[in-house]
């Protein structure tokens, strides 16, 4: 009788712990994602050096963890061909402890003609990916923004 009761308490404790873990990880992911994805925190700029014929695709973001758990982040900028295959990339990984801030800056060097084609939406495009993992990398979320050009995005 007593053993069954103790076992029931253990089951209830496991349920409670999983609920707390779920709440804490969702809260952390939402806060980190919203602080990173906000317009003030992230900027994508394109510049072309006409003299050298090189274009630069630059991503500047300020990552901040206001959540309850540590977060592993992977941020990447990719160039994609018309078939959606990545042919150029620049990515970085950061670990953010609770309350930590880390500015991230990534630049993709591409031929100026290619950058122009991307901006015109002529087949090639570029992609920005933010991956977040928390709770010992067991829970995660990723946001991939594919810019096809030719629009106002």
């Amino acid at each position: 009788m007593r053993a069954v009761r103790v076992f029931g308490l253990v089951v209830a404790a496991v349920q409670l712990a999983s609920m707390i873990a779920f709440g804490a990880s969702m809260y952390t992911i939402l806060l980190v994602a919203s602080s990173t994805a906000s317009g003030d925190a992230t900027a994508i700029s394109v510049s072309i050096d006409e003299t050298t014929g090189v274009g630069f695709l630059r991503l500047d973001t300020a990552t901040r963890n206001e959540g309850l758990l540590g977060v592993n982040m992977k941020i990447g900028v990719y160039a994609l061909d018309a078939e959606g295959e990545r042919f150029a990339d620049n990515s970085t990984s950061v670990h953010l402890e609770v309350g930590q801030e880390e500015p991230v800056s990534l630049t993709l060097r591409l031929p100026a003609g290619l950058i122009r084609r991307m901006l015109d939406g002529d087949g090639d495009c570029f992609e920005v990916t933010v991956e977040l993992r928390t709770l010992n990398d067991m829970v995660g979320a990723s946001n991939t923004m594919t810019y096809r050009g030719g629009g106002s995005a």
């Binding site: 999983s18 829970v139 995660g140 979320a141 990723s142 991939t144 923004m145 594919t146 629009g151």
Partner: peptide, 20 residues
């Protein structure tokens, strides 16, 4: 699909499914 862009969000909560 947004104007000239596609936003894809992937939520991986499979750990909680296993825990459940």
């Amino acid at each position: 699909d947004l104007q000239g862009a596609t936003n894809t969000v992937v939520l991986d909560l499979s750990a909680f499914v296993k825990l459940a």
